[in-house]
Amino acid sequence: MSGLSDSLLPVAILVYTLAMLGYAVEYAFSSSRGAPSRQLVTVGAGGPPSRTTEAEPRNRAALGGKIALVLTWLGAAAHLGTIVTRGIAAERMPLGNMYEFVVFGCFVAIASWLGIVTRRPNLRHLGLYATLVVVLLLGIAATTLFTPVGPLVPALDSYWLAIHVTAASISSGVFLIGFVPAVLFLIRNKYERLTAGVPEREVYLKFPVSLGAKLPRSEVLERLTFRIHVFAFPIWTFAGISGAIWAEAAWGRYWGWDPKEVWLFISWVVYAGYLHARATPSVRRTTAIWIAIIGWVTMLVNLFGINFMVEGLHSYAGL
């Protein structure tokens, strides 16, 4: 079973990568979505305006996107298989070390992404970015974090593992997906500012602002970012509370400023700051989004920085 789990993960990564290619095809050949009128002018000015040449790549693009979406579902199935077979092999919740934590968190990220796309099919082409971050993180998990299947250390042997670590992993995965539209918002926002009232051909856009042409309107991205964070924040809060209850039973105190606890607190405060900034009309939306991005940076510090560099009570990474 553990062999199956270990071979399913590369399959999932490969399928996600193929999906990424499909999204990239859709992305490259589709017309710009955010500013359709302007794009039409550009096409018309760039070459002989012919209906057939325009419609064909668009169909091909949509096909690429549809294939990519199917591949994402298949990748998610293989991904889920990795987790389940690992759990069966280890005879426990597959959340006992950093490798398992990241694999599970990435699955939550993909699952939330698929949930979003199911409800809002017109965001499909953003799957390029969603699969990109997941492939990157899973790549790190498979190469540097991998730990063979093993039983839990005594400190983790508690039913609180299923509650606390699952909550932490789920909220991390959802925050990860929230990070994607947050960054895209910044790109699109810059793009909109630079192209406002100017014919597109006259503006020279550098990467990554040039990506903005094919992104949804900034309000759409901003609202999506907010809703994802609103979903993740209570789960993160619950992860902290359940962690405190477990810590009381295991270490005798509900809170002890262990490095992992400190960074949970920092992320919580930063994300709370984002929600407050978002609710305050006098704070610009760009500022609020930057706070959300800082929030994700603190999550990464907690996951990689603290696990690799600082020794604490939460040193279960198995590295």
């Binding site: 400023w257 490095p259 400190v262 960074w263 607190f265 920092i266 405060v269 930063v270 709370a272 700051g273 407050h276 900034a277 305050t280 006098s282 704070v283 603190t298 603290i306 600082v310």
Partner: peptide, 19 residues
């Protein structure tokens, strides 16, 4: 709210050295 936001941010930064 602005002050509260600044204080929240300071709280997060102030917690860092302890880790």
């Amino acid at each position: 709210m602005r002050t509260a936001l600044v204080l929240l941010f300071l709280l997060a930064v102030a917690a860092v050295p302890g880790s």
